[in-house]
Design a protein around this nucleic acid. Structure first.
Length: 588
RNA sequence: GGUUUCGUAGCUCAACUGGAUAGAGCAUCAGGCUUCGAACCUGAGGGUUGGGGGUUCGAAUCCCUUCGGGACCA
């Protein structure tokens, strides 16, 4: 049992004794004591004043005395205004340390089967900075949910059909001369993306010519010959034309090779892929059922709608008058399919917050259709990555490419690693592995430390830092602990100590908060909570390191205790960072 | 126009979801390696939490209003 719950339990009993009133654990507010005050944990007594009918100070004093009586773990207490600061005995902390169990996954009686969807790229463009946030966030949330004791299936839905891929195909047929990624040496997704851009350039010119001839912009868009070609190709694809499907498959396979290379560098993967080419027909049957149930209605032109005005939303189109579906139609179908396939308890959709409305509508429709699983749906809505100039724009060439970004990070990492010169005795392969871990660590940490809900700023002019509140800092602290262990390998490391320093106590306290931090991060779907925890722990250890002797400690028990403490810190950091998708090097 | 979201130090982010004197990093300045790894540590300066009002013992956090940015829906 955690010290916090011990205190809460004692406080509930104390209130009963003192004031003869039953309170729930919600009414006992326990928080960490601010560093400028003496104590470890603090009870805020203001909420209890109505019960005690005494001043805050008196209430706190009474409560403190009673709790000290009830919980032997509490050694002393002091009162500042309405704040009851409780000090926990050294004995308790030492015992907590020797009986520490931070192994993952946590035991979870409410374990669930969850699907986490993230990345979900289009097949006409390479991945960019925005995808990077999505991928790091989704992958990390999936790992955190796993660590919290759930069963998790990682998935992506690949947008492999539609007019966008047809555009790339047209451009390649017209101007490709049969070249392939292997013939040009390009990464497949960049190769196909280049043809998409080529299409857009020519298409734009055609429109300008038409507009110069007096056509309005809206008509020019659809009348342009290239657009007509792409639309025709899409129709052929939908009709299953063999040659078209063949080319489509080939070009998509190039893209997948490229994506896989990037995913591999990112260190992420998926257990299951969904392809829109297979899911886009889903949902229509459900629309029929919904019509029969009267959840949906048909307009005169034959289109199908749902009226959500009573819920504060609008009317939403579900099936066009020509019977073709829209995004939300397939999302309905896909969700139902997934639930049936995996007996899921929930789906987490990692999608940018510009889709907030879409998911609100989607979940509401599923609810109205009577699917009880709608309660397990969660939209992990995250903010945009902005540049100093605002949003990334393809047309203005401000898109930050994911592969370029990694390459830059690796170059920076290689440079600073060379400057430090700590890896000189390693093989080239080992060295590159460390360089990669640091580069990816810096990038991932940079993105994952920010509260997902908030939009964040990325300045391409400034390289991502390796000092301060960063991934490499935490990796470095870990490396220090590993260095100690290397130097004492084979020694008898048993210890027995009676007293500990304030910093040692803080470290033990922090380490014991690890499971609660995981739970909190899982509950709020926020890797940022875990990222900041890791940083705090690393920083505390670094301060400890600066004013404590470890290997040179005056006494063997003290030395071995500090080594054990260092190991626990290192292990905890490694576990936490791994959940963020960040690997720890042994040296750096 | 309607809905929604955000605004915290020069910059990038925190603040245990309503708690104590709003904290870190970067940048700036001053110190600290002949000693376990300095990608580090210790310290200093830097804030009317966009502005105004309200609720509360207590507000960056909740409500109203206003200004400014973003997104979504026509």
């Amino acid at each position: 049992m955690s010290i916090e719950s011990i205190i809460v339990e004692a406080a509930i009993k104390a209130v009963k004794q003192l004031y003869n009133t039953e309170v729930s654990d919600k009414q006992i507010q326990v928080q960490n004591t601010k560093p400028e005050f003496e104590g470890d944990l603090t009870i805020v007594t203001f909420p209890l004043l109505k019960i005690s009918k005494k001043s805050p100070e008196e209430t706190a004093k009474d409560l403190g005395a009673a709790i000290q009586e009830l919980a032997p773990e509490i050694s002393t207490f002091n009162v500042v205004k309405g704040f009851l600061n409780l000090s926990v005995s050294e004995k308790y902390w030492l015992n907590a340390f020797t009986t520490l169990n931070n192994s993952l996954p946590l035991a979870n009686p409410n374990s669930k089967i969850l699907m986490v969807e993230y990345s979900s790229p289009n097949t006409n463009k390479p991945l960019h900075l925005g995808h990077a946030r999505n991928i790091f966030l989704g992958d990390s949330v999936a790992e955190i949910l796993k660590a919290a004791g759930n069963k998790v299936i990682k998935t992506q839905i690949i947008n492999d059909r539609g007019i966008h891929i047809c555009k790339s195909m047209i451009a390649w047929m017209k101007w490709g001369n049969g070249e392939t990624p292997s013939s040009t040496g390009e990464k497949g997704d960049h190769f196909v993306g280049r043809y998409y851009v080529l299409f857009e350039q020519h298409y734009k010119k055609e429109q300008q010519v038409l507009i110069a001839d007096g056509m309005v912009e809206k008509d020019a868009k659809t009348k342009a010959a290239l657009f007509q070609d792409a639309s025709n190709l899409l129709r052929q694809w939908e009709a299953g034309d063999a040659k078209t499907v063949e080319l489509w498959k080939t070009m998509n396979s190039w893209v997948y090779e490229g994506f896989d290379a990037t995913y591999k560098k990112f260190g992420v993967g998926f257990e299951k892929n969904y392809y829109e080419s297979q899911t886009y027909i889903l949902g229509k049957k459900i629309i029929e059922e919904g019509l029969a149930k009267g959840v949906f209605f048909k307009k005169e032109d034959g289109s199908v709608w749902i009226d959500l005005t009573a819920d504060g939303l609008d009317q939403k189109l579900l099936l066009r008058s020509d019977g073709t579906s829209v995004y939300i139609t397939q999302d309905i179908g896909t969700a139902v399919d997934r639930y049936n396939d995996y007996k899921l308890d929930g789906i987490v959709y990692t999608v940018m917050n510009e889709q907030d409305y879409h998911f609100k509508v989607l979940f509401l429709i599923l609810k109205k259709l009577g699917y009880s699983f709608w309660e397990g749906l969660y939209h992990l809505s995250y903010g945009m990555v902005e540049l100093p100039s605002g949003r990334m724009k393809t047309r203005e060439g401000t898109v930050v490419d994911a592969d370029d970004l990694i390459d830059e990070m690796i170059a920076t990492s290689a440079q600073s690693t060379a400057e430090k010169g700590k890896l000189d005795e390693l093989s080239l392969e080992e060295k590159n592995d460390v360089i990669r871990k640091i580069a990816i660590g810096a990038l991932k940490y940079y993105m994952v430390k920010v509260d997902p809900k908030r939009s964040m700023l990325f300045n391409p002019e400034e390289s991502i830092d390796f000092n301060g509140h960063t991934g490499p800092f935490i990796q470095y602290i870990y490396v220090r602990t590993r260095s100690l262990l290397r130097k004492t390998a084979g020694e008898n490391l048993s210890w027995k100590v009676q007293t500990i320093s304030a910093k040692e106590k803080e470290l033990i306290k922090k380490i014991t908060e690890f499971p609660a931090t995981i739970k909190e991060a899982a509950k709020l779907y926020s890797p940022a909570i875990l990222a900041n925890y890791c940083y705090d722990l690393a920083r505390e250890y670094s301060a400890f390191w600066a004013d404590h002797q470890i290997l040179k400690a005056e006494e063997i028990n003290t030395k071995n205790f500090r080594i054990a403490l260092s190991k626990a810190v290192g292990d905890t950091l490694a576990q936490g960072m791994n959940l963020l998708g960040i690997e720890m090097p042994e040296r750096m």
